[in-house]
């Protein structure tokens, strides 16, 4: 293309080493940067957040309409139910407590919480961030999966394999008075 006429729209100041060269169309200015994968939060983030809230509210509402919260008999300090089970999220703890009260109830849970808090200070290798099950972190992922499996197995044992007097029962042999 042949330049027909040279017109200085932005006159150069000879005292300065920089000057305005040209104006381009674009949504934002990026100097010395490659293309980044940024999008504006409005509406991309906002609409996802709103959809998540709608889904969350709908599920909770449906559950509370069709499966009302359970209410047992009024508290009777003289007569504990048999077996006396805690809510599901404490059944793992209850299972441990049935072996040893101090270590099951305070010792091991306390050590677990301290251990969880210590994780980022022990595992300082800067790799595999932002990816699920990164290959370089196979060891860490395996250990964590072990922890998750122990937690879930303890809860399942407490929920389905413990009958009257906290004795071992298989779910299909559970006495009928225990739901």
């Amino acid at each position: 293309m042949k330049r027909i006429r040279e017109e200085e729209i932005f006159p150069r100041n000879p005292n300065k080493t920089y000057g305005l060269m040209e104006l381009v169309k674009g949504s934002s200015t990026r100097v010395d940067r490659g293309p980044d994968d940024m999008v504006s939060s409005w509406p991309h983030l906002l609409i996802r957040e709103a959809a998540l809230f709608a889904a969350c509210f709908a599920v909770i509402l449906a559950l509370s309409v069709f499966k009302p919260a359970p209410l047992e008999l009024e508290a009777n300090p003289q007569k504990p139910p048999n077996p006396a089970k805690a809510p599901w999220y404490f059944l793992g703890l209850q299972e441990l407590v049935a072996y040893d009260a101090f270590w099951g109830g305070l010792g091991i849970p306390g050590l677990v919480v301290i251990g969880l808090m210590a994780i980022p200070y022990l595992d300082r290798h800067h790799s595999g961030i932002g990816r699920w099950f990164a290959k370089s972190r196979r060891m860490a992922c395996t250990l964590w999966t072990g922890y998750v499996v122990i937690v879930i197995v303890l809860i399942i044992i407490g929920q389905y394999f413990r009958g009257p007097n906290w004795a071992w029962y298989t779910p299909w042999n559970m006495p009928p008075e225990v739901q």
Partner: peptide, 23 residues
């Protein structure tokens, strides 16, 4: 808070666990 059987005995056991700090 509902003061049903689950409530009463779960808290009894929970308080029992706290008492094991005697160890």
């Amino acid at each position: 808070l509902p003061w049903d059987q689950l409530a009463f005995w779960a808290i009894t056991v929970g308080a029992g666990i706290a008492g094991k700090a005697n160890w």
